[in-house]
Design a binder for these strands. Sequence first.
DNA 1: ACAACATAC
DNA 2: GATAGTATGTTGT
DNA 3: CGGCAAATA
DNA 4: CATTTATTTGCCG
Lengths: 454, 454
Amino acid sequence: MAKSESSGDTGRPWQSYHTVYTNAKAGMEGVDKEKVQRIVYEMSKGSKYFENEERKEAYIKQKIENMQDQIAKLTDADISHYQKVADKRILELEATRDLTRIWLHVDMDAFYAAVETLSNPSLNGKPMAVGSMSMISTANYEARRFGVRAAMPGFIARKLCPELIFVPVDFKKYTHYSDLTRKVFQNYDPNFMAASLDEAYLDITNACYERDATGGEIAEELRKSVYEETGLTCSAGVGPNRLLAKVCSDINKPNGQFVLPNDRMAVMAFISSLPIRKIGGIGKVTEHLLRDAFGIATCEEMLQNSGFLCALFSRSSADFFLSVGLGLGRTDAPEVKLRKSISNERTFSATDDEAFLYQKLADLAEMLSVDMKKEGLCGRTLTLKLKTASFEVRTRAVTLQKYIFSSEDILKHASKLLKAELPISLRLIAASMGYWSVCSLLTDQITELWNFKF
Amino acid sequence: MAKSESSGDTGRPWQSYHTVYTNAKAGMEGVDKEKVQRIVYEMSKGSKYFENEERKEAYIKQKIENMQDQIAKLTDADISHYQKVADKRILELEATRDLTRIWLHVDMDAFYAAVETLSNPSLNGKPMAVGSMSMISTANYEARRFGVRAAMPGFIARKLCPELIFVPVDFKKYTHYSDLTRKVFQNYDPNFMAASLDEAYLDITNACYERDATGGEIAEELRKSVYEETGLTCSAGVGPNRLLAKVCSDINKPNGQFVLPNDRMAVMAFISSLPIRKIGGIGKVTEHLLRDAFGIATCEEMLQNSGFLCALFSRSSADFFLSVGLGLGRTDAPEVKLRKSISNERTFSATDDEAFLYQKLADLAEMLSVDMKKEGLCGRTLTLKLKTASFEVRTRAVTLQKYIFSSEDILKHASKLLKAELPISLRLIAASMGYWSVCSLLTDQITELWNFKF
DNA sequence: ACAACATAC
DNA sequence: GATAGTATGTTGT
DNA sequence: CGGCAAATA
DNA sequence: CATTTATTTGCCG
Ligand SMILES: Nc1ncnc2c1ncn2[C@H]1C[C@H](O)[C@@H](COP(=O)(O)OP(=O)(O)OP(=O)(O)O)O1
Ligand SMILES: Nc1ncnc2c1ncn2[C@H]1C[C@H](O)[C@@H](COP(=O)(O)OP(=O)(O)OP(=O)(O)O)O1
Ligand SMILES: [Mg+2]
Ligand SMILES: [Mg+2]
Ligand SMILES: [Mg+2]
Ligand SMILES: [Mg+2]
């Protein structure tokens, strides 16, 4: 037992430090991953952040071990029972398969960085990152060759690439260009679903029919049009559902596309050897958990372990894993969706100075109130989020009788929540409001009331 | 019964919340007391502090009712008995009246604030308070016009006066200026009695004789001299004893003086309509108690109720009340007085973290030990004072066989006292030492021992 | 309803 | 010297 | 002696 | 958000 899997003890400690940004991503092909990993580890080691990551890793390891124990405890009877459940469920899911729609996922290439390069063409060809010494939002492909990645702190990125140019984040620019891309998307699907500033899902079934074009042709045309309107390149994926389209858009990034035909065999072949981590919704923790507890690394292995998955996960999780194994995804028309929460947060250098913390909270309350007023929102649940000096995250919430939106009300209740945690040394505070069912949009009277103040 | 005194139920709840700083004081003449009272109430309402104040008020009310019951139970025989006791005692006290000495009480005007204004003349004319958002030690007269007062928390003061400037406490400055004033006092009475950093009692009988001057003239001269030496103004009261002199010094504050002649008729006239609260030693509770239980509001009413006072109070309290009615006070030469205790205390945000509380106690023990060494003191009674999260105050004491002074000894015994209270959530800890009769000054050997450390 | 996690951009 | 900000969904209590 | 309350600057 | 600190005195059990 102790003989196998003895890596980690043998003098390469960096191999066990995993971060979001030490992962495969488009543009990382020729990178010396070992070297990047080592530098990231050296720069992180000993920091409060690192220590917290270690605690988290230990917690996850524990969780995996618990799951292994549970698996070991399953009787043969259990196993055959859950296998039946799984098989039945697979049939039900299979029955929902819809190969009648053609979905396209489009994702801009190195979006913020590309926009900044348009604004300042002298950046062209040079390794560049958008963000600060503390945090990078994205990097262009030149920088990615050095291992520089979104979500990597700038000071580590600079170590990987000393000539790296830093450009501060400027949201106004990105929303402007985002709007331009969306004008293009509109032409192919008036009901397209924006997933973020730089990506969208389009149901191009009608577009293909109307223009008598294949999905691939539509994708070419759309990408060309986006480039003409914005000067920016993007990548596209075409497939029978949104989940697959998204996977496809990443395959030939940057400035490429990939089409998965609406054919069950093609889908199953595509899926079979696909690493589960490529699927949207499966992140670092789920990847490790499924690998270490079940030996699952590819999507087809989801199906091979379907009984165990049904035995150990909730209905909704098991359904998700099985549909991943089947290459299923949503094909339904996007519904109009209202936001469910609104928040803001700020990081500062850790302190237990209560006057300082209160002032931060007051600032957040004020900003939050302004944002709520801009959208005419009124909420009932207030959540205070705190990150301690040691990176531990806590949330504290209250649900009120009344719907509120003024900074005074927010501050009043948030203060109480904060007070209950004092004394405490913090590096971040967030204020968030939510829980408006429908009725909670600002009533006209209240709107008047605060308009009066302006 | 229910008809009279129905205030408090009728929508003005703030009228029943009394604090030390909602009281008459020099400089509060043009203040809208109702408004101040209301704001103080609004800012306090709902806090832990407020809730504790309510408990205390309820307790006092109970005490007053008990006293009323006792009064009601007095038989005619009791009454005439105690009246005789009182009359006799009044004669005895009257016999001690000494009109041969002239006492002067001098009290600096807005002392800390005035010193801070000397250090930073740009503060001149602006409302300013010395202290923090939690507690104000004093305020200048500009601030007092807004209702800002010593012992008022800063955050309430800011509500009363948004432009209020806060200056942190700086004791070194105040002792320096205090020393300067005392050099002046010395010239008028080499044995003057310092009552605090900013006030003193002087027996100016000799000074008047030597300079062939009246008390008023001496007071003028002294005040002028203090101003010349320090740049600070003060107020003075002159009278036949210390108690009266102190009352007088407040009458024409700031930068004023008042002389009460050494004449029995003048004293009785002065005393007659004087509110008892003006007398040093009669505070909020005694004022309410005497008013609500006996109907006593002025000093002369002390004499009119002398029988009841003797019936219901201890000998020493009754004597004090009667002498107040007679305008008597101490005229004897000040004896050298040794301090009887030495203590320090610290408030922090309430916690039940035992490691934290222990650390606080260790800090206090260390500070206390240092202070004791500075004065060469050694004590035998150690008192631990605790204030719970709900502002309840507790004290726990031990008297030891040995006299101690080292931080280790203090901590050792204080820890035991604290441990016995755990678990507990505290907002303040104090350590105090006392009980050295005479012998308790540091013996030479011990002195050597700790000198060795320096 | 609340709190902690996981995930994504 | 330095590890973000905004939003959503799931799980367990 | 020990605990609490009141008072003051 | 936030209601001090240091000392003395008196009462009660
Ligand atoms: N932690 C983060 N991870 C990814 N993107 C982030 C992050 N924080 C902010 N962003 C912003 C910057 C990106 O330009 C934008 C779009 O993200 P994403 O599409 O994942 O990467 P990208 O467009 O920069 O590069 P590419 O899509 O070519 O891999 O979102
Ligand atoms: N409650 C308190 N807590 C702490 N320090 C105080 C308190 N009250 C007064 N002090 C300090 C600050 C004062 O300047 C100093 C002298 O007090 P005091 O003579 O009563 O007031 P004052 O000198 O500030 O104004 P004035 O005498 O003009 O009314 O003692
Ligand atoms: Mg992108
Ligand atoms: Mg994207
Ligand atoms: Mg004074
Ligand atoms: Mg004074």
